[in-house]
Design a protein around this nucleic acid. Sequence first.
DNA 1: GATCCATAGAGAAACGTTTCGAGGCTTTAT
DNA 2: ATAAAGCCTCGAAACGTTTCTCTATGGATC
Lengths: 344, 344
Amino acid sequence: MVRTKTNPSKGISIKDVARAAGVSISTVSRVINNFTSVKQKHRIKVMEAVKRLKFQPSVSAQRLATGKSNVVALVLPRYEGIFYSFYALELIRGIGTLCSAYKLDLLLHLTDTRSPINLKGVGGIIFADIIGNRHHLEEALAGHIPTVVINNYVEDLEVDCIAIDNEGGAASAVDYLIGLGHKRIAHISGDLVTQAAAERMKGYSLALQKHNITLNQGYIFKTDYSRGQARAAAEKMFSLANPPTAVFVASDSMALEVMAVAREYGKNIPGDFSIVGFDDNPSGLYGPVSLTTVRQPLVKMSQESVKRLNQLISKERTEPEKIKLPTELVIRDSCQPPASFRKG
Amino acid sequence: MVRTKTNPSKGISIKDVARAAGVSISTVSRVINNFTSVKQKHRIKVMEAVKRLKFQPSVSAQRLATGKSNVVALVLPRYEGIFYSFYALELIRGIGTLCSAYKLDLLLHLTDTRSPINLKGVGGIIFADIIGNRHHLEEALAGHIPTVVINNYVEDLEVDCIAIDNEGGAASAVDYLIGLGHKRIAHISGDLVTQAAAERMKGYSLALQKHNITLNQGYIFKTDYSRGQARAAAEKMFSLANPPTAVFVASDSMALEVMAVAREYGKNIPGDFSIVGFDDNPSGLYGPVSLTTVRQPLVKMSQESVKRLNQLISKERTEPEKIKLPTELVIRDSCQPPASFRKG
DNA sequence: GATCCATAGAGAAACGTTTCGAGGCTTTAT
DNA sequence: ATAAAGCCTCGAAACGTTTCTCTATGGATC
C-alpha cells in the first residue's frame, strides 16, 4: 500500500501551507525563512495560512536539508554533593538562558565514566569539566564539531577553554589574611589531581612567598575535597603545638566543616581563628557566621561558553581561544586580625 | 550545478556503508536496526563496514523517515535560590540518568513566563512544575504529545501527574512534634498560591485536629517562601506573649532562617525550641544543629516521570495516571520535648 | 529432476524541508 | 512599441533514512 500523501494526524506540512496560500512550496519556504524576494501579497497570504493552520516546520527535515543543527550538547559529569548541585545548576542556568537567546536547543548529557555520546546531529558541544570525558572531547575535535571546554584549561588541545583564575583567587584570599595581620596561615587543599586544587595550592604558596612568609609544610593538609577528610585535617590542624591563626580552605563545603570543628575545639570564629573558603557556595551564608570566600564567576563562565560556541558554529572565528576569568574575594564575617595582632 | 552525490566532508552515509559491504541500502538499514532476516554473512560484512567507516546514522533522517523522536523535553521554570538549585539539579539528575537508560535524549527548556516552546519534533515532555507553564501544558496535550507533570497534581487536565504527598508529610512532622509533647505548635507557611504550601498547611491543621489541639490562628504565619519573610514571621512569633514551643516550617531554607532568629532571641535549639522543616535541603545539615525535616522523594519522582513518559511514548498505556509519592520524616537534632514536659 | 514455498535482498517511494536553475512576468529604457 | 533587464515564482533535485513490494535464490518435497 502506498502511504497516504498527506497524513492529517501527523501534522501540517509546508505542502499544506502552500496549497492553502495558493503558492508553491519554495515560496512558503522563503517566507518562513525571512527571505526578501517575496512579493508582499504572497508573503501575507502565506503568513496567514501559517497562522491559520498552526504550521510549525519539522526540525528534522530542516536539519536534513540544511545539514545544520541548532542543538548544543552540554556534557556534564554526574557527580553528587551540594556544591556540585549549586555549581551545575548555575552553569545550566547560564547556558540555558543564553542558548534560548541564540535560539539554540540545549541537549543535556550527564556522563559517568564510560557512557557514549552521539555526536552526530549536534551543532556544538560544551564540556563542563572534562573529568573522564577527555576521550569524548578528542572525538568531538576529530569530528570538527564546534567545541568549548569550561572550567578546565586544556593546554595540549586546540580547543576553546574558559577557565577560572584559581591561582589568582587563592592568592587574593591569602593576601587578605596576611593583610589582616596573619602570619601562621594554613591551607587545606582539595584533590591535587584536579587542576583547580593544584592551582589554588600554588596561589597559596605564591602569596606567602610574595610577603616573605616561609611556607610551613606542616600547615598544608591534603584532602580529596570531602567533608570527612576536611574534618580530619582540621582536627590535626587544631591539635598542632603551634597552630595557625587562619586557614585558607580550597572549597566552601570543606570550610564549613572546618568551622564546625573549630567550634568543637572551643575556637571562636572569627575571634580566635579566621577562615576563607573558595567557591561562594550559598550554604556559606547560613551558618552562625557567614563565610568569607572567593567567588567563581559561574554565570559569566557559562555565558561566555555559549557566546564563544556560537562564534565557532557560525564560523565568525576559527582559531581557538583560551581564557581565564577573574575571581572575586567576597568578604563576610569569618575573618579578623589575629588575637596577638589586636592586643599588640 | 548538481550537488555531489556523496559529500565526503559531510560524513558517512548508509549508502557508503552499503557500497563498502557490497549490499543494498535496505540491508544495511535492517542490520543496524537489528532485524532478524539478514544472512549472517551479510550481517558481518555490514557490521565490519560500519565499524571501519565509523558510520553513525543521521538522527534527523531517521526521525524524518520514522516520524518518531527520541527527544524528551524537560520544561523547568527558571528560578533562583539555593533550594531550587538543589531541587532542580536533583530532578535533572534523576531524569537525565533514566533518559540515557531508555536511550532518550534530554532537551532542557528553562522557561520564564512567556518563552515559546517548540513542541514539534519532540517525542515527549516533562513539565517540572507548571507555574507559568499551564498554557504550554495545554498546548502539548492538544497536540497529543506524550506528557507528564511532576511536582504538581493537576486535577482538571487529563495528564499524568507525579506529585508529592505534601499533606501527609506535613502531618507527619506535626504528629512527631505532638508525640514529643508539644502542644503550642506554630506553622510558618509558604506561598499559599502554590499547591505545595496549601497542602502543607492543610496537613498541619489536620494533624492538630486529629490530636484535639485547637488551631490557634495567631500561630499561623504566611510568607512567600522567602528568607526575608521567614525572618519577619519568626520575629513576630518569638515576640508573642505566649509563644509556641515548636514550629513546623514549610521549607528548610526558611527553617534555617528561623533557627538563626531563634539564636538571636536567645533561644536554644532544640532545648528551648523545636523546629521541623520540609524538603530535606542538604544545607540543613551544616548548621550548628542539624535540621529535622520532611524528605521529598525527588529522585524517585524524576525516575517515575521518565518511566511513565516512556510508557506513554511507546503506547503501553494511554489512560493518564496521577499519583502522590510518600514523604519521609528525617529525624535529626532540631527537636526535643518541650521544657515544661521534661521538668514535669 | 521439476515444482513449490519460504526467505532474503534489491529497488524505490516516502518523510518534509531547502535550494538551484529556469522560465515568466513586470518594469525600464530606447 | 519593442527589447533588454530584473524580479519572482515554480518545479525538481537533494538531504539520509525507513519500509513496502517485488523478484531472485535456495532448499525441500514428491
